[in-house]
Amino acid sequence: MTAVATLPPSTARPLGHHLATAFLAVVVLAALFAPLVAPYEPDAVDFAATLAPVSPEHLLGADQSGRDLLARVLYGARTSLVGPLLLLAIASVLGVALGTLAAWRRGWVDAVVGRVTDVMYAFPGLLFVVLVVAVFGNGMTTAVVALGLAYAPTIAKYTRSVAVAECGKPYIDAYRVQGMGGLAICVRHLVPNMARPIVGYLVVLFGEGLMSLATLSFLGFGAQPPSSDWGLMVKEGQPAVVQGAFLPVLVPGAAIALVVVSFNVLGVRFADRLGVRGS
């Protein structure tokens, strides 16, 4: 058969990659050093500056209570970044444990984990999290834990697929022949060997986690005032839009969008490098 013309693999655009890296670095630094860089306290109310436009005093303007938007967005980077990190930590501990267990034991354990996962998947979007929030009340802690629980099945499913392949490799049998216990093999060898694809997968999930958490805060289920979480800032800024002041919404909104976009730009490349399959 004739060789069919194949397109060259799409060349990654290093510019976007560098921009994303630089932007994320700035955001992380801002979160770390917010007290040093921020021109005001994030909750310093100043009614004289209500809905102030961009000016030397307020570089990004101010919200309805005259709180400086730059200061709030800088401090907000903290909760907005730490939240997803925590929820992914919860989700990955649970997910990796369940996924490894399912792959290691197979049989009924595998079936049970699969069933639980299926039931979780029956709740579209954030509805499972919404149910948890409805029961345990609003708040950042509930939101983070609930999202962690909601993400766990996804990670478990992924871990299971990786672990099943890994368990088929001869070194596992070799350790077993040496008389090493199942738990020891899993903890000391199996899980560390799966670290690369799992971490790659987590990077891909980070942007989504950030979006979900911000969405919960926007709905009023996550961060509560006077927090300057970005999602909450958008919610609080909404009434001002009708008055024609867009900054209180656009500043945190753009911050979320840019961070997620940057993360997705990096995540895809990162995932490729770490060999994440079928994400």
Binding site: G207, M211, A214, T215, F218, G231, V234, G237, Q238, V241, V242, G244, F246, V249, L250, G253, A254, I256, A257, V260, V261, F263, N264
Partner: peptide, 17 residues
């Protein structure tokens, strides 16, 4: 990559207001 609620507020700001 842009969460729906950000899209929503952006659309309201631009086309609505």
């Amino acid at each position: 990559s842009v969460p729906p609620f950000v899209v929503a507020t952006a659309l309201i700001s631009l086309f609505g207001v």
